[in-house]
Design a binder for these strands. Structure first.
Lengths: 150, 150
DNA sequence: TATTGTTATACTCTATAACTATA
DNA sequence: TATAGTTATAGAGTATAACAATA
């Protein structure tokens, strides 16, 4: 008789809620280091690897070329990444961390460590491991690119 | 010797990746119904309950009054919610679903159902249950408000 | 004065599409 | 023509802070 739908929270909904909460806290912390979460993701993607073209990076990060271009410009302004002209093809170039950017990554990684530890301290070690396993499972099966390959 | 930090993906990072993937897919689907994800969250929050003040809603949704005001204005324009003047205090008013909005919620909920089912089909039933349990645990222990109380 | 809500302003994030320079 | 990348434009999402009306 009633048309009240079953509003039991969906997994995607719960996931978004938790994800937003962690990310917002993290965003405040990295802001003190002068970067945004998206910038951190790009820095992380560039760490410990060869220079990469914007287009390739766009593919890995699941963003458009335009978005990468804008993000890269801000990181260039902040002196955290560098552009290197392509020797053979004058249209392209490569992006890589600057020395300052490379120094920054461990600092930001440490912030991520403490933020994660604090936020997920409400879980048991087993729960954390399980959660990590399930998330990696989803990522693998959907072919999502874990940008910073580890 | 090396200064390479341990970039093992953090839980917050994995969570954000998965959450973004689900939400982006869902966003495309609800867009066909003419609403955004944030609008769906507000509609869901208003469903099956008494009218609520913008300030109270802001508290529940973890947003500022200004953000709620902007979101509400769009939903008013779309005819999905209604404003009712407060009888006793002329400063305030209450928000509630319009008949059209109330009709829309089940449709959007069904979209969320199918989107969730499709996305999380890569998991076993046990994994899904476990994931839901862990997320609810985090939400409860952090006192995050599951907007649409169920 | 304090509170309710709107508005002004600003910035991030992101997409689409037009454009430039090169191939 | 096709490709690499930038830029222009636009809109969502969100915050802060100034503001108007009322209490």
């Amino acid at each position: 008789m009633s048309s009240i739908p079953d509003l039991t929270a969906h997994l995607g909904y719960l996931l978004r809620m938790v994800s937003n909460a962690v990310s917002q806290e993290f965003a405040r912390k990295v802001a003190r280091e002068g970067v945004t979460v998206a910038e951190w993701v790009m820095l992380r993607a560039l760490f410990g690897r060869d220079a990469i073209t914007p287009t390739a990076l766009a593919g890995e990060m699941g963003m458009t070329k335009g978005a990468i271009s804008k993000l890269a410009e801000r990181l260039l302004d902040k002196g955290l990444i560098e552009r290197t002209d392509n020797a053979t093809d004058k249209r392209g170039h490569s992006l890589s961390l600057s020395p300052r950017g490379a120094d920054k990554v461990p600092i930001l990684a440490a912030l991520a460590d403490t933020n994660d530890a604090a936020f997920f301290a409400v879980l048991s070690g087993d729960q954390r491991d399980h959660l990590q396993g399930v998330l990696r499972d989803i990522i693998g099966k959907h072919g999502l690119t874990v940008v910073p390959v580890d």
